[in-house]
Design a protein around this nucleic acid. Structure first.
Lengths: 208, 208
DNA sequence: GTACAATGTGACCTGCCAGTCATATCCCCT
DNA sequence: AGGGGATATGACTGGCAGGTCACATTGTAC
């Protein structure tokens, strides 16, 4: 966590620093990101930076913290009352919120992508593994619940499917970002319904 | 490409250098990988290294080249006669060969993962994008073919599905590596069949 | 106005990096 | 034996990194 001095800063200055830091971390992995550059571009002295943060890792951890916090704002409404909704409805809502987050916070998504891929980063093991584990657990629960209710086939490999769906979540968000642009209209809902029908009924031709 | 001098080296020495380089690149992204370390650990002089390779990028590119070459050995037998086989048979073979490659060349897979994630690497745009595009194209063709033959639903979003299957390929390989260990017996075939049935028939309960 | 704490500053430190080059050694051909 | 091209060597250069520190400036309370 940044030092008290950082939070005493005028909003404008504090936000400028974070803005520059986000700009740096969305371009470069932790080790290549440069405190020198952030400091130069945001017009503060090198010494001042170290009055605000313990070190480079402190800044990075704080930015990740901001991202996780923001992401939770999108997810928390969904995780409360999932028991009363059908499996595919919950999945639709989950994927939709993921896309919404990506559209509204593209820079955060860039950082997350670099972050999650950067196994050499000093906090990878702690944060990424923990979050992937959480995500995996959520899917495990939803799938088990879906099987109990008879919504899903009973012969599913729950663990594998949870893994697959975690990855598919990223894949879908990625595809929407790359190919379909940042449009958040009802065509997106149709797109998601299409995906869900692949998931539910498969892509094979039932006539055969 | 390495200089002629490198290929004139005694096999043992040449292989030791590549072995150390692979060890370095499977641990660290391009920019953090250190020529100094490779040189020190393999017991050759710094100056000698630059008699063998133009620069660090030359070595890296060569290692990637070796990986791609090896990967093609696994893939090329499959891509020739895909027209006579059913869609799901071809997919099964593709995924199986991916797993086989991962089991037999775990270090190569580590390098590939870091490589593909490292968008800051100087050859990312050229090699990774080109390969992803190729993979995407192969899936597009297979899917289109599958639709024409009536094996697949006719309302599929071919582009999206190609994207999804490219990612699922990695996801499945990843899962097998992480969770199921490096066992390459018939249980793997069962596992793959399970996955294919999710893909073909979906995970929903057909009774409902 | 003065005392004192909080904040700001940039030259400087050490460490690691990729890459160079003058020099030494090796090895083969005559 | 000796000449010459190929190969080996490691001290050295310049650049950039993260982090430090003695000192300057500002803000506050009396």
């Amino acid at each position: 966590m940044p030092k008290a001095t950082f939070f005493n800063l005028p909003d404008e200055k504090r936000e400028r620093i974070i803005d520059l830091a986000v700009g740096e971390f969305e371009r470069l992995p932790y080790d290549k990101a440069s405190v020198n550059r952030i400091v130069r571009d945001s017009g503060i002295a090198k010494g001042s930076f170290y009055q605000y943060f313990e070190d480079k890792l402190d800044l990075y951890t704080y930015v990740i913290h901001l991202i996780v916090e923001e992401k939770l704002k999108y997810l928390s409404p969904l995780l409360g009352n999932s028991e009363n909704e059908g499996f595919f409805k919950v999945i639709e809502a989950l994927f939709k919120s993921g896309i919404q987050f990506a559209v509204e916070h593209p820079r955060y998504v860039n950082i997350s992508k670099i972050f999650m891929a950067d196994t050499a980063s000093p906090i990878y093991a702690g944060v990424v593994k923990a979050n992937l584990h959480k995500s995996h657990e959520i899917y495990r629960q939803l799938i088990s619940q879906g099987i109990e209710r008879g919504e899903l086939r009973s012969d599913l490999d729950v663990d594998f499917l949870a893994h697959l769906m975690t990855d598919m979540n990223y894949s879908v968000v990625d595809y929407v970002k790359k190919i379909r642009g940042n449009i958040l209209d009802e065509s997106l809902v149709d797109f998601l319904r299409g995906f869900l029908s692949y998931l539910e009924k498969g892509i094979g031709n039932p006539q055969e």
